[in-house]
Protein backbone atom coordinates (compact mmCIF):
# COMPACT_ATOMS: atom_id res chain seq x y z
CA UNK A 1 0.00 0.00 0.00
CA UNK A 2 2.95 2.30 0.68
CA UNK A 3 3.98 2.43 -3.01
CA UNK A 4 0.73 4.26 -3.94
CA UNK A 5 1.69 7.66 -5.43
CA UNK A 6 0.81 10.56 -3.14
CA UNK A 7 -1.57 13.05 -4.82
CA UNK A 8 -0.32 16.53 -5.57
CA UNK A 9 -3.08 19.03 -4.85
CA UNK A 10 -4.78 21.09 -6.17
CA UNK A 11 -3.74 19.75 -9.57
CA UNK A 12 -4.91 16.23 -8.66
CA UNK A 13 -8.16 17.39 -7.01
CA UNK A 14 -10.23 16.21 -9.99
CA UNK A 15 -9.32 12.61 -9.18
CA UNK A 16 -11.84 12.64 -6.32
CA UNK A 17 -14.47 12.13 -9.02
CA UNK A 18 -12.78 8.88 -10.03
CA UNK A 19 -13.75 7.65 -6.54
CA UNK A 20 -16.92 9.62 -5.72
CA UNK A 21 -19.58 9.57 -8.45
CA UNK A 22 -21.21 13.02 -8.57
CA UNK A 23 -24.33 11.52 -10.19
CA UNK A 24 -24.85 9.80 -6.83
CA UNK A 25 -23.17 12.16 -4.38
CA UNK A 26 -23.49 15.75 -5.67
CA UNK A 27 -26.89 16.36 -4.06
CA UNK A 28 -25.91 14.76 -0.71
CA UNK A 29 -22.78 16.96 -0.74
CA UNK A 30 -24.80 20.12 -1.48
CA UNK A 31 -27.45 19.21 1.12
CA UNK A 32 -24.68 18.67 3.71
CA UNK A 33 -23.28 22.12 2.94
CA UNK A 34 -26.82 23.52 3.36
CA UNK A 35 -27.19 21.71 6.70
CA UNK A 36 -23.88 23.17 7.93
CA UNK A 37 -24.94 26.66 6.82
CA UNK A 38 -28.29 26.32 8.64
CA UNK A 39 -26.52 25.06 11.76
CA UNK A 40 -24.06 27.96 11.74
CA UNK A 41 -26.86 30.51 11.25
CA UNK A 42 -28.83 28.83 14.03
CA UNK A 43 -25.93 29.17 16.48
CA UNK A 44 -25.19 32.74 15.44
CA UNK A 45 -28.79 33.74 16.05
CA UNK A 46 -28.97 31.66 19.21
CA UNK A 47 -26.01 33.46 20.77
CA UNK A 48 -27.76 36.75 20.10
CA UNK A 49 -25.79 37.94 17.07
CA UNK A 50 -28.99 38.06 14.99
CA UNK A 51 -30.41 41.05 13.13
CA UNK A 52 -30.80 43.46 15.96
CA UNK A 53 -27.56 42.60 17.82
Amino acid sequence: MSDVAKPKNPEDDWKIWLVVNPATWLMPILLTVLAVAIAVHWVVFAVGLGWGA
Binding site: W14, I16, W17, L18, V19, N21, P22
Partner: peptide, 17 residues
Protein backbone atom coordinates in the same frame (compact mmCIF):
# COMPACT_ATOMS: atom_id res chain seq x y z
CA UNK B 1 -12.52 3.96 -11.96
CA UNK B 2 -14.19 3.30 -8.64
CA UNK B 3 -16.85 5.87 -9.45
CA UNK B 4 -17.27 4.67 -13.02
CA UNK B 5 -16.35 8.07 -14.44
CA UNK B 6 -13.67 8.27 -17.09
CA UNK B 7 -10.70 10.61 -16.60
CA UNK B 8 -12.18 13.02 -19.13
CA UNK B 9 -15.61 13.05 -17.39
CA UNK B 10 -13.98 13.58 -13.98
CA UNK B 11 -11.93 16.51 -15.26
CA UNK B 12 -14.93 17.99 -17.07
CA UNK B 13 -17.13 17.74 -13.96
CA UNK B 14 -14.39 19.17 -11.76
CA UNK B 15 -14.13 22.27 -13.93
CA UNK B 16 -17.83 23.02 -13.37
CA UNK B 17 -17.54 22.11 -9.67
Amino acid sequence: SLSGLTEQQAKEFHEQF
